[in-house]
Design a protein around this nucleic acid. Structure first.
Lengths: 239, 239
DNA sequence: TACTAAAATATTGTTAACAATTTAATAATC
DNA sequence: GATTATTAAATTGTTAACAATATTTTAGTA
């Protein structure tokens, strides 16, 4: 392989790409709540200008993933207990509505699609790949929202999903116990297949309450290394 | 009073103030969908720098109140029929959930507060002040959301409320017929007072469906210019 | 006139330099 | 040593100048 002498004017990632990568890092628990997001550091890390980062941070703050204080910069948001409770309560409402919307258009193809996703999730879990398992369990909820076909509900659920890790890490800690149990995902698929919405909704409610009920007072939080952002790009395999 | 010779370095409105004013203008039907939002024009209008406006437009686009196309600037969003339907369907879900949350904490004080608001709305309507009437009827829904006490539900309802005029003006037109009927607001208060959530929810559903059902195929005032039609594949921002 | 091409204008996008502020480091005082 | 001042460094915030692109106007041609 030949050495590259001249720097080839590498064009960095776009604004949306940077945004997505930071969102993904939060989702993957690589960026814990409270992490300071310094502009020059991010700019060099992503290979973009500071102005780009600045704009992205503004957008992230607008959707409450980031806290911005004048003259003191941005950091990954740390939702209050109240906000966490409200978020989960709303999540139950939205996810129930998604199931009720989805049931009207369930067919065997959708069921197969969901089972396939679930299978991958289970396999990842069984082989101890908890990182992939987490991503796939998030995907399960996302797929339900997308399949329901209501773009606004989809939008809102995705907003909630992005903010959920912040609540869990702030108030519960990064523990296997605080994640989706995939046998409940299985039960939801079963109920959908049977056309039993009420049951599907009930399981979903319990599924979410399982975590929600734990939200009380916080344990600890530490500052994370921004360089973890360089590691990532683990392709979140999405069908 | 002495004449002021020197220009006193008037400090313009803040970023948030500019944002709110534009949002309010949309809410008041003063800024119809499709209106071009030119940066310098807005900057001089508000007495701020262009950079400020630029940031505000980014935020407005992030919450789908504004459409932004690279190199062609921003304009007030024109939601599609599909988006309009999804928005209204979601609104029914959210407002119902708000009523169900609110009912657990209803007391005579809240009822009095709502009736007072309703009275002002009715008076404004009766004296032909349709601008105030519109604002107050919006306030009715907003107050319900605020009183329910779930900050995320509140956030989402406000998001929907801000986007609703865009749907109505794009697909129905600025007509008295396409507004809240305040006798239905009255019926909702009555049901809440009686502690009858089911009835309150039912009235709310009808209330919203009254407008929602009209959304069909657009009377489309859009003058299709050839340049836009010939432009290859506008990038669809996927949620 | 109707159409095309070219120039002029207007508008958005980007950048680097600088200002303002906060944070960290060092020195001074008790 | 602990606490407060003082200085230095780092970080965020702002701006004006310029570049890139789009739009309008004008001129040219059949």
């Amino acid at each position: 392989m030949s050495a590259q002498i001249e720097t080839p004017a590498k064009t960095g990632p776009s604004e949306d790409e940077v945004l997505r990568q930071i969102e993904q890092a939060v989702l993957d628990h690589r960026l814990p709540p409270g992490t300071k997001l310094k502009e020059v550091q991010l700019a060099t890390l992503f290979g973009v200008k500071r102005g780009l980062i600045r704009k992205v941070l503004t957008r992230l703050a607008h959707s409450r993933l980031v806290d911005q204080t004048p003259n003191r910069g941005a950091s990954v948001a740390k939702p209050s207990v109240k906000e966490g409770q409200d978020l989960f309560a709303t999540r139950r409402i939205i996810e129930s509505a998604i199931l009720e919307t989805l049931i009207t258009q369930i067919d065997s193809k959708i069921i197969r699609h969901l089972r396939k996703l679930l299978e991958r999730e289970q396999r990842a879990y069984q082989r101890g790949d908890s990182e992939t398992a987490l991503a796939l369990s998030v995907d399960f909820h996302r797929q339900l929202a997308a399949l329901a076909g209501n773009s606004v509900l989809d939008e809102y659920l995705n907003d909630i999903i992005r903010r959920t890790p912040l609540v869990i890490l702030t108030h519960l800690g990064d523990d296997e116990q605080n994640r989706c149990r995939n046998q409940e995902h299985a039960a939801i698929i079963d109920a959908l297949e049977q056309g039993d919405v009420k049951k599907a909704v009930k399981v979903m409610q319990q599924h979410l309450l399982h975590i929600e009920n734990k939200i009380q007072h916080k344990p600890e939080t530490r500052q994370a290394d921004l360089a973890t952002l360089l590691r990532p790009q683990s392709e979140q395999t999405l069908a």
